[in-house]
Design a protein around this nucleic acid. Structure first.
Lengths: 146, 146
DNA sequence: ATATAACAGTTGTTTTTGTAACTAACAACA
DNA sequence: TGTTGTTAGTTACAAAAACAACTGTTATAT
C-alpha cells in the first residue's frame, strides 16, 4: 500500500536534511570563522567548554560524536589562540582537563549572543511549537542510530 | 519576555541539525560508498541524472547548491567508472549534456531501492504527518537563505 | 611482579575539499 | 571586426578531514 510510486531526490529525507544543515552551517560559520578565524570543530569544543565547564577531550568527542583526532587538533588550535588551557589529571596522567581561559570565555560569550540571534532569525517564520517539534524530530532521528 | 535564560548547545538548532545530518549521512553513505565506492557529491550527481534525466553540470550545481569544482570532479569520477557520458552541445560548445550510461542506470536503480528502504527504516518510529512536517520545516528553513 | 590489553591523546600520511586562477567559448557593444 | 565582459568547465595549490599507526599511561590477570 505504497502511496508514492516514484522517487524524488528533493523529498528524500537524508538529502533535504543534509542540504538544510549545509546551508545553515555555511551561513552560521561566518560568525565564528569570520570574527575569530576558528573552524567548526573548534566552535564545538569552545561551546562544550563554555556550556558545560571543564571537560576532557574524550568526553567532548563522545558528546559531540567527533573523532578524537579532530578534537585533538581543535584543542591545539584553541590553545594556540589562548582560548583554552589544559591541566593534566593527578590521578590519571593520560587525561587532560580542558577549560576556557578568560579570553576564551569572552569569545564564547560573544559567539553565544550571535548564536542566539542567528537561531531567532532563521526561525522567524516558524511558530514556537514548530521549532519545538523540529528539535524533537531531529533528536529522535538521531537517536535511531544509538 | 524571553523564556530560556540559558544557552544549551544541545538545543541550538544549527547544532542539532548538523548532528542529525552527519549521523544520518554517515550511516547512509555505507550504501553508495560501500557498494560502489562513490562519494557524496558523486551520489548527488548520479541521483540528479537518474531522477531528472539529462542535465548540465551547471544545472546540477545550482540545484544541489554544490560548487562547480566539486561537480566537475564528481563527473570526472563517474565518467571514469562508466556511470555517465558527456555530449557537447552543438549550439554552445561550452556546455556538456550529462546522462547516465546503462551501467549508471543500473547503479542508480539499485541505490534508489536502498535509499527508499533507508528512509523507511530511519522514520519507522515517526507518524506520517511527523515526516511531512519535518520535510516542510527543513525546506522552509533552507528557503530562508534564498 | 610482569606480561597483556585497554585507554587518552598525538602524529604522519592519504584523501577530499576550498579557493583562485585558468582555458575555451560565446555575447554585447562600440 | 575587435575589444571587453561573461559563462561553463578544468586545473593547481593550499587547507582540512579521514584513517592508521604511534606514544605514554593505567587496568587486568596470571
Amino acid at each position: 500500500m505504497q502511496k508514492n510510486k516514484f522517487f524524488f531526490i528533493e523529498d528524500f529525507l537524508p538529502y533535504i536534511l543534509t542540504q538544510a544543515a549545509e546551508t545553515v552551517s555555511a551561513n552560521f560559520q561566518v560568525f565564528y570563522k569570520g570574527k575569530y578565524g576558528i573552524l567548526r570543530t573548534e566552535w564545538r569544543v569552545l561551546f562544550h567548554l563554555g556550556n558545560f565547564g571543564q571537560m576532557t577531550a574524550r568526553d567532548i568527542g563522545i558528546n559531540a560524536k567527533t573523532h578524537k583526532t579532530k578534537i585533538s587538533r581543535a584543542v591545539f588550535r584553541l590553545e594556540k589562540k589562548k582560548y583554552l588551557k589544559r591541566t593534566t589529571s593527578e590521578e590519571d596522567r593520560r587525561i587532560e582537563f580542558l577549560s576556557l581561559t578568560e579570553k576564551g570565555v569572552g569569545v564564547y560569550n560573544d559567539l553565544k549572543k550571535e548564536a542566539e540571534g542567528f537561531e531567532k532569525r532563521i526561525t522567524k517564520n516558524f511558530t514556537e511549537s514548530e521549532v519545538l517539534a523540529l528539535r524533537k524530530c531531529l533528536k529522535k532521528l538521531e537517536a535511531n542510530f544509538d
